[in-house]
Design a protein around this nucleic acid. Sequence first.
RNA 1: GGCCUGGUGGAGAAGCGGUCAACUCACAUCCCUUUCAAGGAUGCAUUCACGGGUUCAAAUCCCGUCCAGGUCACCA
Length: 557
Amino acid sequence: MSTYKDLAELIFPDVKKTIKDLEKQYPPRDLKEGAYVTRFAPSPTGFLHTGSLFTALIAYRFAKQTGGVYFFRLEDTDQKREIKGTGEDLVNQLQVFGIKSDEGYMGDHEEGNYGPYQQSKRADIYKIVIKELLKKGRAYPCFCTKEELDQLREVQNANKVIPGYYGEYAKCRHYSIDEQIALIKEGKPYVIRFKSKGNHLNHVRVHDEIRGDMDLSENDQDIVILKSDGLPTYHFAHLVDDHFMRTNLITRGEEWISSLPIHIELFDTMGWARPKYAHLPVIMVNDAETNNRRKLSKRKDKEAATSYFLESGYPIKGFIEYLLTIANSDFEAFLLNNPKADIDTFNLSFEKFSLDGALFDLPKLNNISKEVLANMDKKTFTDQCLDYAKKYNSELYELINKDRDYFESIINIEREQEKPRKDYEKFSDVLPKILFFYPDHYDQLIKNELPFNEFIKKDVIIELLKDMKENISLDTDENTWFNKMKEIGKQHNFADDRKEYKKNPQAYNGWYADAISILRIAICASTQSPKLYDVLKILGLEEIRRRIDSVVAKLQG
RNA sequence: GGCCUGGUGGAGAAGCGGUCAACUCACAUCCCUUUCAAGGAUGCAUUCACGGGUUCAAAUCCCGUCCAGGUCACCA
C-alpha cells in the first residue's frame, strides 16, 4: 500500500523545500497598520486595455494613499495566448500614465524581495506548495483527456446536472494511490487537481470591500491547479503568489466574483489568511447593434486601447481624472471644490464606488480634458504638447521647435488667468488652430477663397483694409485700439452703434462687428480666432501690413 | 439554463423611511459679446425598471416579475 507521500515523491522527486522555507524566504511585510499591498497582474497578451489601466490605477492609488506597496506581476502562464514583448510594453504604457511600480516586473529587470514576479519563473514555488497538498491528500493527478472531459460535460448537460469535475464525476479522484502511481509510471499525461471538500448546497459569506457581504455557494469543483505544461492555473497562482508576495488587497474586475469560492477554499485549506477583495466595476460601452451595454471590446472599440487617447492627444492628467470620476462619485465634487489641488491628494474610498459599470462617455472626457488643458500654464502646456507632437504629429513638432517662444505666446492667449480660454480639447486640436500665425502657412491659407461676407462690396472691403493698414496702432491698450477700429469703420459707413444699425441696416455697409470681421479674415484667413488684439500683438505691425497687402492684392487680382 | 451581481433623467451620479429627487457632463432656449472658445440665466426625472405589500409616510424596507451584466476551460 502506497501513501500520499509516495505519490508526492514520485511526482516531485526534486522538490526538497517546504512551505516553511517559503514562509521564511517571503516574510510578512513590515508596514504600518492599514497599509495596502496591491498589485496589477496582467497577462502579456496585447496592448494596455482601458479597463486594465482603470484596475491598475485603483490598485496603485490604494497602495499609495495608505503608505503601502504597489507591484507589478506578469501572469504569463498561458503560452498559447502570449504575445512576445507585450509584457514590457504594458509596464511602459502604465508608466506613461504615471503608474510606477514600487517593485515587481519592470520589463527588462525585476525589483523587490518577493520575486520572481513573472509566473513562468515561479514554477518551483508552485511545486513546493503542490507537493505538500499532495502529501496531505488534498491534490491528486488527473489523467482525463480533453475528449473525456468534453464528453462528461455533454452528459451532465443532458442530465441537467451542474457541469464540471466534482464529486462522483471526478473520476480520477477515486483512483487508489497505487492506481495513480501505476498510471504515472505508465507515462500517462496528467494534470494536478485540487481535491475540494466543499458542497455547493452550502453557502460561504465573503466580504467584498466594495459590495459588502456576499453569500456564495461553496466551491465543490476539483479545479486543476497545475497544467500539463507544469504551470499553474490562475486560481492557484493567485493563491500562492498573493500569499507569498503578501498582497493584502486584491483589486480585480468583477468577472472574478464567480470564482471567489474557489479562492476562498484554497486560502482556507492552506490555513492562510484570506486577503481583502475589491471587485471593481467594468467600464462599459453601448453596443450600437444590440443597443445593450457590454464591456469595452478590444476588437470593436477604439477606446479600448489606452494608446488611442494618447494618439488623439488627450492630456494624461485629463484621462486619469476621467477614470477617477468613474471610480469615485465624489471625485468630481473634490475637483470642483479644490480646483488648484493636486489630484493625488484625493483619497479613493470603497464606499464611493458604484456597483455597476459606467458607460464610457467621450463628451465627458472631452469636457474634463478641455478644462485640464485650459488650466495648464504655458510651459506645461508646451512641454506636453511637444511630447505629443514628437510621437504623433511631426508638423506640429517642427513648428514648436522652430521657435518655442513664439509658440508659447500663441497658446498663451487668454491663458494663465481667472477664466482661461478653453478652445483645445486635445493636443491634436492645436495645429489647425494656430497654423495661420506662421507666415508660410498663412500664405498658403489665403490661396483659398476667403470667407468675407458676400453682402459687402469688394471695393468697400479693400478701402477699409487699406485704411486700417495705414492707421492701425498697437501701442495703445485694447480698448483704445478697439475704439480706433470702430472709428475707422465708421468712416467707411460701418455703424458704430448696434441699435442704430439694426434700425436701418440699409443705410450702412454693415456695423462695426462686420468691419472687425473683415480685418480678422484678412489676418487670420478665418472668421474665427482668439482675441484679435492679442493676435495682432503677436504678429507685429510689419506682418500685419504685409498680410493686408496680400489680401488687398488678392481681392484686386 | 443554473448560480452570482446590478437597475435613480441622454451619460456619470447624490440620496440609505419624512418638505420642490443634489451636483457634473450633454442637450435646448435666452442674455452678454468684435468672431470663436467661454461666461451668466433658465429649462430638461409630476418620479426613482414594473407589480404588489409593510407604514401616518418609501427611490429608500419586504415579496414577486422583468431587464441588463458576469460566470459556468489544462484563459486569465
